[in-house]
């Protein structure tokens, strides 16, 4: 390891210890276990800065944070799965004594030995770690893929296909059409006005239609079909722009949250 890296590491360790002491002493009057609390806040700040240091370049602090994240997250999901699915949903269906041990309520319908099937399939899945018997993990994998295929076949047909199409057929003259006279007498551009609502219905109907034309590749995009396809691209571009803007906002609000933590909870400057 380079000498300069060692110096930087030493400085970071000293700053960490200093921050821990200061934080703990600041918390002392308010909370019990202030030494632990001071450590946790300092460690969270260190991890935040370690991840942000990647903006400069890849470095040992970022790698530390990255490896820590991998280890902790893997164990987190394993524990959550164990306590929420195995203990809460599986054990009460398989064993009364184990349910009593874990203090989970018994199922009103009693035991269901049918639930040994996922346990057996789960154990077969773990065989993937074995070099010789790894092929047997294809059975539970087939079950997982089969369940996904069977459930999604109906679910997507209902929610992503039929429901989306039926929602597209909106009244193109508005829901409160009272004739051309009343319509022309009220043509303001207020956000809840009839003209804007009418325009929205037209945009949704034509937008979905032209968007689908763009995705139809069995016919060359020429002539009237080409015009529809081009309008479809415009609608899709607006969609991508809106999604992009929305995502950026989400990320920025997370960044604001981290900066608030650093300057508020950790440094107590704001």
């Amino acid at each position: 390891m380079k000498k300069s890296t060692l110096i930087v590491m030493a400085v970071v360790v000293v700053l960490f210890l200093l921050s821990w002491v200061l934080k703990a002493s600041a918390l002392q009057p308010e909370q019990g276990s202030y030494i632990l609390r001071g450590f946790l806040v300092t460690f969270a700040a260190f991890l935040t800065l370690a991840v942000m240091s990647f903006l400069y370049q890849d470095n040992p602090f970022y790698k530390f944070a990255e490896h820590l994240f991998v280890g902790v997250s893997a164990a987190f999901w394993m524990c959550m799965g164990f306590w929420t699915t195995i203990v809460q949903n599986l054990i009460p269906r398989l064993s009364t004594s184990l349910a009593d041990y874990f203090m989970v309520p018994q199922r009103p319908e009693g035991l269901n030995l049918f639930f040994y099937t996922p346990v057996i399939l789960g154990i077969l899945l773990l065989m993937r770690l074995s070099p010789r018997g790894g092929w047997i993990s294809r059975w539970p994998l087939a079950f997982i893929v089969g369940t996904t295929a069977g459930l999604n076949f109906i679910r997507y047909l209902r929610s992503d296909f039929i429901k989306q199409i039926s929602s597209t057929f909106v009244p193109l003259l508005g829901t409160q059409w009272e004739g051309i006279g009343p319509f022309l007498s009220n043509l303001d551009l207020s956000a809840s006005g009839q003209l804007v609502l009418l325009l929205s219905n037209w945009v949704v109907f034509l937008g979905v239609f032209t968007g689908l034309i763009y995705f139809f590749f069995s016919k060359e995009h020429k002539g009237a079909f080409g015009v529809g396809s081009r309008v479809g691209i415009w609608i899709l571009m607006i969609t991508f722009g809106a999604s992009f803007g929305y995502t950026v906002m989400g990320r920025i609000s997370l960044l604001v949250g981290r900066i608030t933590f650093l300057f508020g909870t950790w440094l107590e400057l704001i």
Binding site: A74, G81, T85, I86, N89, L121, I123, L125, L126, I144
Partner: peptide, 18 residues
């Protein structure tokens, strides 16, 4: 079957951890 799926998924988490 959704519950079966969830239970096998927990074993998949164990597999990932292993």
């Amino acid at each position: 079957f959704t519950l079966f799926f969830d239970i096998i998924a927990v074993f998949a988490f164990f597999l990932g951890g292993g």
